[in-house]
Amino acid sequence: MGITTIIFMLLSLMAVGSAIMMLVTRNPVKSILWLIVVFFAISGHYIMLNAQFLAVVNIIVYAGAIMVLFLFVVMLMNLNADSEPTRNVRLQAVGILSGGSLLLIILSALMKDGGNNVVQMRIGDEGLISNLGKVLFTNYVLPFEIASVLFLSAMVGAVVIGKK
């Protein structure tokens, strides 16, 4: 078992365990902090796949901006563990059962053992910033500009909804 497999296992365990902890924690602030741990684990996976631009953007945008926004909103509302009424146990069991059956169905549909579908680890320059920047500003200029219009409209929408 190589070092790559060991790191993959550790990061996967960290991601799945933190995601489960995010669900079972009653306190919303702790839940957000567990989700940040999940994002760091996924960034570790990106680094293992040599997608360094996405790893940095994932940390900056998700862990740095979006989760801080969530944290601000939770603290603004002064939510705590007992402000959320529990769903009844039967509905919870149905939710977990349907999620698990969805997992089994998609897993059985996607798992094939044909060919050598090996993922390239720790090599390859597709994910480096210079290469991605070249692709982004030659082939994808129009979507990039449309994304800026999307951000402007989202900003205006947030201000309009929040001011009411």
Binding site: V16, A19, I20, M22, L23, E84, P85, T86, R87, L91, Q92, V94, G95, I96, S98, G99, G100, L102, L103
Partner: peptide, 11 residues
């Protein structure tokens, strides 16, 4: 799947 279960279970 953890995300889907969370959407179904939490309020």
């Amino acid at each position: 799947t953890i995300g889907i279960v969370g959407v179904l279970v939490r309020r």
